[in-house]
């Protein structure tokens, strides 16, 4: 069963309940996002993916496309003047919160003509984090729930318990990997990974010899994949070239 909707005048088919953002991207319509990650969907936090919609009933609204379900007869406008104006406001606020954010945020600011932030609203001039929560979600799902958002209101931040190097951290760096603004420092140098003020020795891939994972990460994986016969000592790149027989 599928539903039919229009995105920017383009007729699209979608599974019922599929999110408008995903439908748009499948059909080549680009919508900007910061807090969206395919593997960790449903954050709906950065609000950059706002779109205008008109339901089949004729009612109109502005919604975040990353969590809005596709419906029969829905008309979506992803780049109207109102949408662009809203995105400028969102970008201004995010850029003021995190003046040193790297990557997509400054790029979108440029694209949308957001310049000269009002530093009256900037809490910390060195801030890179927009508090989207992707890192804590990644840590909970892929890692070991080592970090969380702590405190609240203007003091809210992403941090390990008691602001100490987190005992639960396995050094998988999923948090740094998904961060859209480069706010989590993770350095691999001389076979040692430093993250959250903790140091991990990096193990070398048994095939290519490149450092690729921490011992803690592999031990944690083994524990989760209880009955696995798989040899985890190969890096993802080498693993991809091997047959299942080579890996067991």
């Amino acid at each position: 069963m599928t539903v039919n909707l229009m995105i920017d005048g383009l007729a699209c088919e979608a599974a019922p309940g599929q999110h408008v953002l995903d439908v748009a991207r499948q059909n080549g319509v680009e919508i900007p996002t910061l807090c969206h990650h395919e593997a960790l969907a449903g954050q709906a936090c950065c609000r950059l993916c706002v779109v205008e919609i008109e339901e089949a009933s004729g009612s109109r609204d502005v919604v975040v496309s990353c969590t809005y379900p596709a419906k029969e007869g829905l008309k979506v406008s992803t780049n109207s003047e109102q949408v662009r104006r809203l995105r400028r406001t969102v970008l201004t606020l995010l850029a003021e919160r995190a003046p040193l954010a790297e990557g997509a945020l400054p790029a979108y600011c440029q694209e949308y003509g957001v310049t000269g932030y009002d530093l009256r609203f900037t809490v910390d001039k060195d801030e890179k984090c927009i508090l989207c929560g992707l890192c804590t979600k990644a840590c909970a799902e892929l890692g070991n729930s080592a970090i969380e958002t702590t405190l609240r209101g203007v003091d809210k931040q992403v941090a390990p318990p008691f602001d100490e190097p987190p005992a639960a951290c396995i050094g998988c760096a999923s948090c740094a990997e998904v961060c859209p603004t480069g706010a989590i420092a993770c350095e691999d140098a001389d076979g040692v990974r430093t993250i959250w003020e903790k140091e991990f020795e990096l193990l070398r891939c048994e095939a290519c010899g490149k450092p690729f994972a921490t011992a803690e990460e592999l031990a944690w994986l083994k524990e989760r994949l209880l009955d696995t016969e798989l040899n985890l000592a190969y890096c993802p790149s080498c693993r991809g070239k091997m047959s299942l027989k080579d890996l067991t």
Binding site: T136, C139, A140, N144, S145, A146, I147, E148, T149, T150, L151, R152, P160, P161, F162, P166, A167, A168
Partner: peptide, 12 residues
């Protein structure tokens, strides 16, 4: 409860 979440609640 993961310590990170307990600490998050205690500080919230």
């Amino acid at each position: 409860v993961p310590l990170s979440q307990a600490y998050a609640m205690a500080t919230f």
